[in-house]
Design a protein around this nucleic acid. Structure first.
Lengths: 213, 213, 213, 213
DNA sequence: AATGAATGAGTGTTCATTCAT
DNA sequence: GATGAATGAACACTCATTCAT
């Protein structure tokens, strides 16, 4: 009965799935090469070789080099946001401090894997010659989304009496900056340090201040 | 007596001075072009045109493009350190908090002018293919110097009883990260905010913490 | 009796017919794309898209791009010759001048539709690297056929006393050249001029000369 | 006194001269390669190799491939016009028919050397995708200039009573078309025919008509 | 010391052609 | 027979670097 319809829709679905997987494979390869060689040195040929296809194939999936990089940024950004949301969902019942800890750990962990990418792509966005306007915005928007979630979390903190409300608007930025720095330093460090050992002093200082009480 | 020697040394000194001025002029031009066009787009020809000389001349003063960029980084880094030291010298008699404030303001002000440069050059250093090893170190060394001064300052803070000693080793990094973030955000902001308005909440949160006492 | 043979030959004939129609459809599409995009810009993908099939299909009907273009040229050339022959047949009883007029009108009309194609394909034939020798000849052969018919017509003209016989060998070329120019000029003109208005001065000058009698 | 000014202006003049000669050399090489390989097959590398320089050098003299081709067209067009004007000047006192003969011979001779170029570049101009508008116009403008001179000549012919005035407006086009065809046919012919042998029947037919008087 | 034309390796991108499904 | 993703050779163009003047 519906044998015909399925005989058409299934292959299409299959095509879609394979196309998506191919895109993902390319993005993975691109990230690897980018991390190894840097933004400029990462040649399309290198990326193609990494995936195990020929250059032309890359252009079947992405308009050009720039679009490939942008897609990579968007996809990885989306993944981070998804993980953050999942974490927030999971920690819903917990108190502010615990949730904040979980949130930052998420960023730290994800960034450990992908930070070099973010760093490179931020740099890419900072280049002036980007003809496509709003290019930079796309990158910032992601971090603004992260900030937004931190603000929400901060509101909970204020309600709980765990945060002073006066400087609340500055907290997201400060937390992100310190986390960002943490990641960068880990990236440059010889041997890694467990996430929680890094976060503990950060949170302590952030919440209780550097001055003795 | 030494008339001869001076008749030689003076012109030599003059030569030196002129050579130094030429180098400085090139570095200034390079920074401008870099800030405007980005790291990749800044061509040697552009820099030469900005100084008003021909490409060949650039190569009389710098081995190659890479060395020029490194010189630029080193010079600007040295300038920052010099200003920081001057500020520390000036504020010697003041209490910890005031000195810290002055110190960070120095960084913020200097970075406002040169941050884009630092950002670009950090990126440059992060590229893996740098044949010259220890390249990255040169860049980090500068910031380690800044950190070092912050540590010294921290020791004063601890002595004064203005800082809890437990996490003292983390403070420089945190302060630098937050300052770094401040600069970046200012760079992207439409209109600038007075330095002290930016620093006040930072210092308040850092010293007294985000939690109510 | 021959029921079997027909049971085989009919479907074969059907196949043939469909194959021919498919080829024709491809050639039509090719001509459109060629006229719109030019010889180089006309990509196999474009042609396929215009027919509504995929690239691979094109290669089921033509060896390669070059053969497709040649087929297009040959088919259109054949059509022109057929129309010319029909016109000559039709005008058999008429006097030379009328027949010549009809003949040239045929060329003009056909070229108005397909001239851009002929022009592009002539260019294609002029390229030196054509590995297949005698390539150019195929294109010229068609025009030689046209010339041949003009010569025959000229013989009639001479017999009628309408043409001086001395330069008869040059007339076909001259007529074709002027007609060719007429078409090209029409192609570039903003608005078209009725065919006969174009032909009248041509014929007048050709037959009676530019000098007063 | 003016030793300084000359010490500067002379080298500048020298530079200019050399620059012009280099451009001319490139254009010559380009024309050769174009004639041999065709419009598409003529690679920048080939042209460079023909001049004996490297690719980059070509781009010191011409924006890009397209501009090089356009320059070639403009220069050759200018040369033709200059020769035509010289011929008109020379033949000033002669009667119409002689001047026309000289004029066409000029075109024929020049085209014999450069016709293939003109043909290719006309084709190039006909391509639709030329982003630069008025591109085609530049090419046509040259031939319009030639036409213009033929019109002037025609006016002399009318005054002399050598031409009937009615179709005068069509004469330039017809003459050019026939000459154009003559050149093309010569190009394809195995062995060349002396120019005057080609022109004689053309002029006879044009002036006196194909019909017997 | 300054010049700037020449160099040429390097890279992104295109597109005719193939072939597994 | 039709499909369309994969292929990879080809080519225009860039730009750091050199060196004769």
């Amino acid at each position: 009965m519906n044998s015909r319809s399925t005989s058409r829709s299934k292959p299409q679905a299959l095509r879609m799935r394979m196309k998506e997987e191919a895109r993902a494979a390319i993005l993975d390869a691109a990230e690897q090469v980018l991390a190894e060689q840097g933004l400029q040195a990462a040649r399309m040929d290198d990326i193609a070789a990494r995936v195990g296809v020929s250059v032309g194939t890359l252009y079947n999936y992405f308009e050009d080099r720039q679009q490939l990089l942008e897609a990579l940024r968007d996809v990885r950004g989306g993944e981070l946001l998804a993980q953050l949301d999942a974490e927030l969902e999971r920690s819903q019942p917990s108190p502010y401090r615990a949730r904040l800890h979980g949130f930052l750990r998420c960023i730290l962990d994800y960034s450990r894997t992908h930070f070099r990418l973010f760093s490179l792509l931020l740099e890419n966005s900072l280049q002036r010659d980007t003809s496509r306007e709003g290019e930079l915005d796309r990158h910032l928007k992601m971090w603004r989304e992260v900030s937004l979630r931190l603000e929400h979390l901060g509101q909970q903190g204020v309600k709980e009496g765990a945060l002073r409300p006066e400087d609340a608007s500055h907290y997201p930025a400060m937390l992100l900056d310190m986390t960002h720095g943490l990641v960068l330093r880990q990236l440059l460090a010889k041997q890694p340090v467990p996430t929680d050992e890094l976060l503990a002093p950060l949170l302590r200082c952030f919440l209780e201040g550097a001055a003795p009480r």
